[in-house]
């Protein structure tokens, strides 16, 4: 096993981390800004994969237009779901969120099964990425690099949005004191619709981007939401950078864990999560619950 091999493992881990980041960051953002724990988050990741399959008609050539259509469709779907289902429960006790978003998870799983069947749906690698790249003599799937670039760009745009625009400052303020923000004249309900739609669109983008590597199945939603929770618990629920750190840690842990202790690879993410929960229950980059003065 030479250096090139480890580099390949590293890139594999980062590629996996990229889809995890896209999946988890919306979960974290939606919780942070809106206080909603979205158990259906993985379902929108799944929906992204199926929508890409549908929009591209299963043809690799349809990848790019499909990806853009997935983004647009997910924004609309996210906004509608927030308006129709989430908005009525903000003021209700938290059990309502759990029941409601869990119901959404079940409904979306059945919907996908009904529309696409229970079998696998996959997409060949888009033509632009069909030949591997060579680094240190080792062939790399170039699609991995695309995934890393996509997630990196998303993280950068998200940072610029949150820290360099007024709208982003409103989102950050909403995580701190929604009622006060509203009393200053900001249409917080509309802001929430936007945040939810954005989080859903990121998850759908992550799911769609994974389709050329991994076939979609109705069961992937539950797996995805579990992975997403592991990532945000490790990174800190509500923290965008926590989602990034958590995703990279899990991605690398998976890629290298499988090399050294293959029979334990499935356990590592849970073990890391348990460790974080014991030592820093609010997550690596999360904030400890503060007492309001």
């Amino acid at each position: 096993m030479d250096l090139g091999f480890y580099l390949l493992q590293l890139l594999t881990g980062l590629a996996y981390a990229s889809t995890l980041f896209l999946l988890a960051v919306g979960l974290s953002l939606i919780f942070g800004a809106m206080g909603i724990v979205n158990f259906a988050h993985g379902s929108f990741y799944m929906l992204g994969a199926y929508l890409l399959y549908a929009f591209s008609r299963g043809q690799a050539e349809g990848f790019w237009t499909g990806l853009i259509l997935v983004l647009a469709a997910a924004l609309v779907i996210g906004a509608l779901v927030e308006r129709l289902f989430i908005r009525p429960i903000y003021r209700r006790p938290e059990e309502y969120q759990i029941l409601l978003t869990y119901a959404l998870l079940l409904i979306l799983e059945d919907l996908v099964r009904f529309l696409f069947g229970a079998g696998y749906r996959s997409l060949p690698t888009p033509p632009a990425f069909s030949s591997p790249l060579f680094l240190l003599g080792t062939p790399f799937p170039s699609y991995y690099l695309f995934l890393v670039g996509l997630a990196g760009l998303s993280a950068l745009l998200l940072w610029a949005f949150l820290y360099r625009t007024r709208l982003g400052a409103w989102v950050r303020a909403a995580t701190q004191d929604r009622e006060m923000l509203e009393a200053l004249g900001i249409n917080v309900p509309l802001l929430y619709t936007g945040v939810f739609a954005m989080g859903i669109a990121l998850a759908a983008l992550g799911g769609a981007a994974l389709l050329p590597l991994q076939a979609a199945t109705p069961g992937m939603a539950v797996d995805a939401v579990i992975q997403a929770f592991i990532v945000v618990v490790i990174g800190g629920l509500g923290s965008v950078w926590g989602a990034l750190l958590g995703a990279v840690l899990i991605g690398l842990l998976q890629a290298f864990g499988i090399l050294f202790l293959p029979e334990m690879a499935m356990v590592f993410p849970f073990a890391l999560m348990a460790l974080v929960l014991l030592l820093r229950p609010w997550g690596l980059l999360g904030r400890p619950p503060a007492v309001r003065t």
């Binding site: 004191d177 006060m180 200053l184 004249g185 309900p189």
Partner: peptide, 24 residues
């Protein structure tokens, strides 16, 4: 009207507990 509409109409509310956004 919801509170944001009232603020947009020109009501300026200064709360007793200040409610500065601490991270901003």
């Amino acid at each position: 009207l919801p509170s944001y509409r009232r603020a947009q109409l020109g009501l300026g509310y200064v709360p007793d507990d200040r409610r500065i956004f601490p991270e901003l």
